[in-house]
Write a protein that binds this DNA or RNA. Structure first.
Length: 264
DNA sequence: ATGTCGCATTCCATGCGA
């Protein structure tokens, strides 16, 4: 089965691209970030007509996540646990059938954290702390788990075109990268890095300064897999060509393909 | 190159977030 993550930067602006991508890549599950709309304005009918069930956790103007799935989603959770006062719509999860069992999919829109020096950066670190706590709880279930989304983290220098240019940025500060490693050290696998050691693999190119034309990108959209999911991992795809479409999102979709049953 | 998008309101211009 194919599970994909994509920060669409407004689902209403990107509806044509979204429908074209569903047809082209045929993901079984598609996690969307930055839908930038409330639940009642989400283009649900158009997506259901394409053969997908829809769950949303929307918000006016900013943020907002959704999961599209060919199978009906079960055990849906809205919002990241750990801070009832957090009103930003950045987390959604559900379960779908995989082989004889199920796979749990979390859709993540991790805070950007810039500018560093404002309250935005501690919010990011706190959110990462809560995500680690939730991931640890899910990992105890010992089931196939895919935490997919826009992590707003450049894990390693090789994941950006110009590390020096990002040195002071919330996406690449040592403390940010350390928190991301803590997540991996719980027992999660970065699916793209598990399947390729290729260089210059990016998932985001800024709209400004000809970043796309110069391939001045960063790899910040990730799919982190539990051991039970990694045992089923066939391959990954960064759908880079989507960035070349007319009026694109600044992020491209990233997919993992999983076997129905683990290799043993 | 303080360079581009998308959203919302102060609504055809500006501020915010990314």
């Amino acid at each position: 089965m194919r599970i994909t993550t994509w920060n669409v930067n407004s689902v209403r602006q990107r509806l044509e691209h979204l429908l074209a991508f569903l047809k082209e890549a045929e993901p079984d599950v598609l996690c969307l970030q930055e839908i930038k709309t409330q639940d009642d304005s989400f283009p649900r009918l158009e997506i259901e007509a394409a053969g997908y069930h829809v769950v949303t956790h929307g918000q006016k103007t900013f943020n907002g996540v959704a999961i599209l799935s060919k199978a009906r989603l079960e055990d849906v959770r809205t919002g990241l646990p750990g801070d009832p006062s957090d009103e930003q719509a950045r987390y959604l999860e559900g379960m779908v059938p995989l082989g004889a069992g199920m796979v749990r999919v979390g859709c993540i829109y991790l805070p950007n954290g810039n500018p560093v020096g404002t309250e935005k950066y501690p919010y990011k670190l706190g959110w990462m702390e809560r995500l680690a706590a939730h991931a640890a709880a899910l990992l105890k279930l010992e089931e196939p788990l895919v935490l997919a989304g826009d992590y707003n983290v450049i894990p390693e220098p090789g994941d950006c075109h110009d590390p020096a240019a990002w040195a002071q940025d919330a996406l690449f500060l040592p403390q940010t990268r350390a928190k991301f490693r803590e997540l991996l050290n719980l027992g999660l696998t970065d699916a793209v890095r598990a399947t390729t050691n290729a260089e210059k693999l990016y998932t985001f190119w800024d709209y400004q300064a000809g970043a796309w034309q110069k391939n001045n990108g960063i790899r910040i959209d990730h799919l982190l897999l539990s051991a039970q999911a990694t045992d089923r991992l066939i391959g990954t795809t960064i759908h880079k060509h989507v960035r070349g479409w007319e009026k694109p999102s600044d992020h491209v979709p990233v997919s993992v393909d999983l076997r129905a049953e683990p290799v043993r």
